[in-house]
Each structure stands twice: as C-alpha cells, then as structure tokens.
C-alpha cells in the first residue's frame, strides 16, 4: 500500500501509520482527533505532507540517507512545512544554496519609504536594508522552489491528498 511517491521513492502506508502511531502514543495523544474522524484523516494527510517533504529535501541534498525528520508541532508552530524544513540542518544546507539579488533602486525605495526605521544617511543604512531585503527574497525563492520541487516530484494517492485541497473528501470549511 502506497501513500505517495517522491521521485523514484515510495512512502508506504505502513510508514505513515507507524509515524501516526508514534504521535498517538506521544504527549499530544489526548488532544488529537479520533483517527477515524475527518479531522483525524486530515492529520494523517498533514503527516504525509511532512514525510514527502522530508524525502524531497533528502533527495535534493543528495544526502543518500534520511533527512532530519520534520516535526508536526514545529511545522504548525513555525508557519508551515517550509518553515519547519528550514529548522532542520538539511533544510538550512539547501537554503544556503539560494542566492538572491535586490536591485539598488529597491533598496533606495525602501529607504525612502521607511525613514522612521532608517533615520540615518542612505550610505549608512543601505547595507542593513539590502541584507534584510535579500534575506526576505531568499526565503521567498526558497519556499517557492521547495514547493515547486514537491509539486514536481510527489504524487499523492487517494486518501492522502493535501489536507487543504478543497477536492478531497474530508476538506472542512470550518467557518
């Protein structure tokens, strides 16, 4: 039974269930939704998102082995799967490969619009501004790249769709 494929690799349902069982045996157990409920199935879908993302990261790193596992609470707490990946050594290694440029006029524009935050002379303030804008840009590019690689490499089987996919049967519209 296959939950998803990532490149040539397979994420088996057994692996997903094992990871899920660990979660249900852990400290979070009492507050997790019943596994048979739609919320429970969506939790499983989240896990599959994490597990497939781990494989993507591992493959992209050419690590030849397991990537550092991405934790579900971390993923949710830090603003998403990508942010959780960034919290792992493998993710940071990939992030280090991302280069970004910000055109000088953007730095100048930011300076002109945000004098409250940058009251000094442009020459003194611009390195900080540029560093900040470049970092933000790299984060955006990294997230887009990683999500695009995930999209290209990963095939999700029925029952393991993205939990937010409105087409999957357990998609909730929680007001």
């Amino acid at each position: 039974m296959i939950a998803a494929t990532v490149g040539g690799e397979v994420v088996s349902v057994a692996e997903v269930d094992a990871r899920l069982a660990a979660l249900y045996d852990g400290p979070l157990a009492a507050r997790l939704p019943h596994p048979a409920s739609p919320e429970g199935r969506n939790l499983r879908r989240w896990l599959v998102q994490l597990m497939t993302m781990e494989r993507v990261v591992a493959q992209e790193c050419d690590a030849g082995g397991e990537a550092v596992p991405v934790e579900l609470p971390v993923a949710l707490r830090t603003g998403g799967v990508v942010a959780a990946v960034l919290a792992t050594p493998a993710g940071r290694a990939l992030f280090d490969r991302v280069r970004a440029d910000v055109p000088p006029e953007e730095v100048r524009g930011y300076y002109d619009r945000n004098r409250d935050r940058h009251p000094g002379r442009f020459e003194d303030e611009s390195p900080r501004i540029e560093a900040r804008l470049v970092h933000t840009r790299r984060e955006i590019l990294f997230a887009r790249w990683l999500e695009a690689r995930h999209r290209e490499k990963v095939t999700l089987m029925p029952g393991f769709e993205h939990p937010g996919d409105p087409r999957q049967p357990d998609a909730t519209h929680r007001h």
Binding site: R31, P33, E39, P73, L76, V81
Partner: peptide, 11 residues
C-alpha cells in the same frame, strides 16, 4: 502548547 497546534493550519 500542543493542543493549540493540533487544529492549526500551517499558515
């Protein structure tokens, strides 16, 4: 705490 994450969406 963990219960506050269990029903949270990633974004």
């Amino acid at each position: 705490g963990d219960a506050a994450q269990a029903s949270r969406s990633a974004f």
